[in-house]
Design a protein around this nucleic acid. Structure first.
Length: 428
RNA sequence: GCCCUUGUAGUAUAGCCCGGUCUAGAAUUCGGCCCUGUCACGGCUGAGACGCGGGUUCAAAUCCCGCCGAGGGCGCCA
């Protein structure tokens, strides 16, 4: 079977009139008008109208929508509304036939519900709205890497199978590792900190796992996290890095992804920077003025964050959280040891990222572990690295899937994840 | 773990509240016929559905119960 093509569809144009071309794609639409027919064929780069006339009508035998075809034909001028040229077919080969009925309608005239689309996710990629979301996601990843590499960050890959569930906090998935108990990593936290010893500035973009039975539009059991850790940077420095990453993502996609924005029907708006910075203490005062009383040291619930989000629409940093709300490795402030050098990046009520300055003194780490009722002996593999000249360092982790929802103005992370995993969905 | 909503052809829906008019309607998809410039082509025609189980009733898509599926919220979430 010859599957070669001379052109991608985007490479075809009206100046090629009279030229013989071969291209491939899937049949989007087929309109038969007696002794002539029009079909639209799409490949990943674009869509093209193909015309069949007179004696060639037999080419249409066995042809149906969504089937993959190889079209041989000649470029000619078109009278079509949306095309200034078309291809007059001399041969149409069906390379792969699409069955009927298909489980969803990929043309997108009728929008199938999310459950059906996720059950048929590969076919859903023929829907240009869905495909555009994942083209944007790819652009976002490229943009993040570009910004970080420009700032001397080195991309790393840490293990996802880990031997100790010692970090506390959310539940981990466990698994049998040749007879030993192992876990799926919920974060690269300890590894990325260790890497600052020799690589100084590192980042990782990878899947992590949390065994929480959350049923919301913003939680998944498997999610993609962007993590950085940087030696010789304080928390405000890595906040600046985060801010520039976010602004670059919005700028790059807004300027370079016009087609995708058109397909999803949403215009990406670049946020103003610098982002507002609100301390935890200020947030308590703001909430107090709304008659919401919260004691210092209490965590902010979603309902509180929603109220704060109304006051600070868009991106803003919530900084200087109480130490008691933060994990053992977070560094306190010099002028007030009850406060931490930490921050969350919020988009309205939605938490996109959290990070801060880390402790780099092993003795301080040991005593902080005890304060939080964690056993330092479970952390010896980690703590020993802090005796080898651990530089002061800061970092953060950001939920990529959540950033995607903010970028395109939707409220369900399942839309921006190819095969989402949540407590009720393990397949496909 | 708790709460709310929901389930009708391949898809997406009307009907349900207020039982009989439902022989379940329109769209799109699919099949057949007609059509040489469509562009959500058009015209004629045909096929295709009440999630599963029980109950109430003369009568159930419609009301009730259970199960299963789906969507959402709360909680959980260094």
């Amino acid at each position: 079977m010859d599957i070669s093509r001379t052109h991608l569809i985007e490479e075809l144009n009206s100046s090629m009139e009279g030229k013989d071309v071969i291209f491939g794609g899937w049949v989007v639409d087929l309109r038969k008008l007696g002794k002539m027919a029009f079909l639209t064929v799409r490949d990943v780069t674009g869509m093209c109208q193909v015309i069949v006339k007179g004696d060639s009508m037999s080419l249409l035998e066995g042809l149906n929508r969504q089937s993959v075809v190889r079209v041989l034909g000649k470029i000619q001028a078109s009278k079509a509304k949306d095309f200034d040229f078309e291809v007059s077919a001399t041969e149409i080969q069906v390379l792969a036939k699409a069955e009927y009925p298909l489980p969803i309608d990929p043309i997108g005239r009728l929008e199938s519900d999310i459950d059906n689309r996720l059950n048929s996710r590969a076919l859903d990629m023929r829907n240009q709205k869905t495909a555009s979301i994942f083209k944007l996601r790819s652009k976002v990843l490229a943009s993040i890497r570009e910004t970080l590499i420009k700032r001397k960050f080195i991309e790393i890959n840490t293990p996802k199978i880990i031997g100790s569930a010692s970090e506390g906090g959310s539940d981990l998935f466990d698994l049998d590792y040749f007879g030993q108990k192992a876990y799926l990593a919920q974060s690269p936290q300890l590894y990325k900190e260790q890497m600052t010893i020799g690589l100084e500035r590192v980042f990782e973009i990878s899947s992590f796992y949390r065994a929480e039975k959350s049923h919301t539009g913003r939680h998944l059991s498997e999610f993609t996290s962007v993590d950085i850790e940087a030696a010789m940077m304080d928390y405000t420095d890595v906040m600046d890095v985060l801010e520039s990453i976010v602004v670059d993502v919005f700028k790059n996609t807004s300027e370079n992804c016009k087609t995708e924005q058109h397909e999803i029907g949403y215009e990406i708006k670049v946020p103003n920077s610098p982002f507002e910075r609100v301390t935890y203490t200020q947030a308590l005062e703001e909430l107090s003025s709304m008659d919401i009383k919260i004691e210092f040291g209490e965590d902010l619930q979603d309902s509180h964050l929603r109220r704060l989000g109304e006051k600070h629409p868009g991106f803003f940093f919530l900084t200087d959280w109480p130490m008691k709300l933060k994990p053992f490795y977070i560094h306190e402030k010099d002028d007030d040891p009850t406060l931490s050098r930490s921050f969350d990046l919020q988009y309205g009520y939605l938490e996109l990222s959290s990070g801060g300055r880390r402790l780099h003194d092993p003795e301080q780490l040991r005593s902080r572990l005890k304060e939080q009722d964690l056993d330092p002996s479970g952390f010896e593999e980690h703590l020993k690295t802090f005796g080898w000249g651990m530089p002061p360092h800061s970092g953060w982790g950001m939920g990529l899937d959540r950033l995607m929802t903010v970028l395109i103005g939707i409220d369900n992370v399942r839309e921006v994840v190819l095969y989402p995993r949540d407590p009720d969905r393990l397949k496909p």
